[in-house]
Design a protein around this nucleic acid. Sequence first.
DNA 1: ACGTTGATTTCGTAA
DNA 2: TTACGAAGTCAACGT
Lengths: 224, 224
Amino acid sequence: MRLVIASCQVDYAGRLTAHLPVATRLLIVKSDGSVLIHSDGGSYKPLNWMSPPCTLVVGRDEEGQLEWLVEARNGDTLRIVLRHVVSDSSYELGVDPGLRKDGVERHLQELLAEHPASLGDGLTLVRREFPTAIGPVDLLCRDLDGASVAVEVKRRGDIDGVEQLTRYLELLNRDPLLSPVHGLFAAQEIKPQAKVLAKDRGIRCVTVDYDSLRGMDDPSARLF
Amino acid sequence: MRLVIASCQVDYAGRLTAHLPVATRLLIVKSDGSVLIHSDGGSYKPLNWMSPPCTLVVGRDEEGQLEWLVEARNGDTLRIVLRHVVSDSSYELGVDPGLRKDGVERHLQELLAEHPASLGDGLTLVRREFPTAIGPVDLLCRDLDGASVAVEVKRRGDIDGVEQLTRYLELLNRDPLLSPVHGLFAAQEIKPQAKVLAKDRGIRCVTVDYDSLRGMDDPSARLF
DNA sequence: ACGTTGATTTCGTAA
DNA sequence: TTACGAAGTCAACGT
């Protein structure tokens, strides 16, 4: 990995074209050839970049300025003109073991599958990832009256999730063995517009608490 | 901006929990307090990070190892234990003038507004950003039969865009002055599932070529 | 301040 | 290999 601090000017041409006026920035060149251009602020996203696989060729522009030409297979180009180099250093980092995550939507779905009653009194699980022609329904449950309940699980519930569930319900209700199928939209947070749309379509909304569900899943509870 | 090369171990707790085993990485501390952790590969996205606003407190863990505790207002925490520091340097970068872009969806919409016939024979523009109660329709056109055509423009056409256009059409068709309003889904690339859904709803799909549109917009063509 | 939409999205997973 | 959905998405824009 090579780190360069330099005042530079950048031009990108690919899916779009973009330009960065002269300023002092951090340039990162990774061992796979990819390049990141960071300013001292903003977010984790660089101002501009080139994804691997790509090649970096160093040369001089017509004014004799140091110029990096980064090119990708698909023709995308990143042109960096270096005005003044403050620092330039390289390091050997080796391969990274990578990130381990826990607590994403999949886990929420697993926890709700283990504790369907937390979604509604007396609710029992029929099947997780219930298959349909347009994709699997997150959870298919049965309520106290024996009616089917299709559950869509989201971390953050917005209008798209309600649309998705609506499509499932339309399809499932065509099946006389299942019909009537009710809808239930479960998420850690549900946006107002999604709530309105869900209500309008007779879909019940449930806000779930990941931490308390995780608590129910405490290993000590499995001793029984 | 502070750059540190060090072997480190990282734990994040926030919306999710994540863990990085010990390895040598690049740590970037920006002047707004945000922290990025990069490996020597991957993409522009860091392995882990903390967005501003946040605070960095340096201390020692129970084993006496150097420890960075990065905390955000909302309680998210990033804990970095430094085993061996290879390099540690700081630089004054100043404020960045920022990125200028050209060629995003807005431009595609502008080009199509200038050349509506490229979407269908004899199509003419009534109005760009035609207002409705649930938001503006990208383009409202009229076809050879004098019927209205609502156009949704996307760079990449997926199922969401079809849903969005469907909601517009439902609303527009309630207006007796406009009805019947046909739907047209225009994008540089349309996914198969979106095509299926669009066809099912009687919405026509058109794949547009940005480069050839830009060519039609060539300044020399404006001499007439 | 809040909500919605776009992004050179990137990244994983399943078909 | 491709296609589709999720993301600690972030950031810009309109209300």
